[in-house]
Design a protein around this nucleic acid. Structure first.
Lengths: 202, 202
DNA sequence: GGGACTCTAGACCGACTGGTCTACATAATT
DNA sequence: AATTATGTAGACCAGTCGGTCTAGAGTCCC
């Protein structure tokens, strides 16, 4: 094994962990299950993640969150306006959801809810993930003429709606809601932005 | 103990279970923890819930879902229009969230996400809960003049947005988003309803 | 009073949990 | 060649898991 072999194992454990935590939650996912799925022995896990399950989960959330964040950012950047952007947001999530047999929704939501009300590195990683997504969204909205405050408000609205629709789609095993909600919210944001940029106040 | 004592124990177990499942998730909540918190012995649990943890969770989700559903329905029914209704929706959830130290968000979301992609009584109970809430919302919207199809679409939008904002509020430990999103979505729905009821098409 | 039924009580089971530990293989450094 | 650092490999631990089981208390009907 070369030196890079170690880092490969580390990342493999991390990705496997991210997938299982996302699908089953933190408490329901055992270390042994992650190890078996990734093919790594327990010694490797505790070498790479001396902080144990908690550190593993925190890093897995951060990795999965930034991975999806990048895909989301690409889709949004390719859109020609807010409406297309939110629609694209919903589209990316809908595709991933359907392709995984309705198992992969938001990579951090399950763990985030499980850990809500507590404090610790896992919670911080989840919060940071959402904050990162929102920052990207706000920048895009500002590039389309939204003032700082409006951009923040609308980014929150877009993420909340899509996130909630994703949950509903997952429970229903039907991505219809996701597309419908994204379309409506996109239209609302575009309308609101048109008002603001032509001189109207919030 | 009188005969009714048994049913009291049953409900006490159910409510304790609902609270713990909501806060920690299905996998992370142990039967022993539920028993200790409710003061019931293991024998009672398996007498009342021979289907074990799965049956307990399914019934707990159904109970908690209908409990909150009723409170939500009361708040919505008291509103004088869609905007006030969605605002009230967000208000009830925001109050409950803040009052519980950001632990109690949606009573079924955590478990629903954990169980997404699987089939079984727990998933069914979660889906039924959301469906029940949506049915109530649709009725209200129709009473304000929304056609069948529009009511369904707007109810999905309202629940999705509020649900997503609730998740975000929980992670942030700040109910601000909830109020802001509910306000915006309420305004959007009211505007859209005004268009529809004065003759405009969707 | 004697069953029958409802429900409580908790000991007990094998399986599995997260975590620690020692042994060892490989690769770079000296 | 010897040493050191980087990882791999898995046996092992106490504790907990969900679930089963038997014993018996309390209440009702006959």
């Amino acid at each position: 094994m070369t030196r890079s072999g170690g880092q490969e194992t580390r990342v493999r454990i991390l990705r496997t962990a991210a997938e299982l935590f996302q699908r089953q939650g933190y408490g329901a996912t055992g270390l042994n299950q992650i190890l078996a799925a990734s093919g790594a022995p327990k010694g490797s896990l505790y070498f790479h993640f001396p902080g144990g399950k908690e550190q593993l989960a925190a890093e897995a959330m951060a990795l999965a969150g930034s991975d999806l964040g990048e895909r989301l950012a690409v889709a949004v950047a390719a859109a020609d306006g807010p409406r297309a952007a939110v629609t694209a947001l919903g589209g990316v999530l809908a595709d991933g959801l359907a392709a995984s047999g309705y198992r992969d929704g938001c990579p951090v939501a399950t763990v985030a809810l499980e850990q809500a009300g507590e404090t610790g590195p896992i919670n911080d990683a989840c919060a940071a993930t959402y904050e990162g997504w929102l920052a990207g969204l706000r920048e895009q909205l500002k590039s389309w003429g939204a003032p700082e405050e409006t951009a923040a408000e609308l980014a929150d609205l877009a993420l909340s709606s899509v996130q909630g629709a994703l949950l509903l789609a997952q429970v229903r095993r039907d991505v219809g809601v996701l597309h419908a909600v994204a379309g409506q919210v996109g239209a609302h944001i575009e309308a609101r932005l048109a008002t603001v940029t032509t001189g109207g106040a919030a």
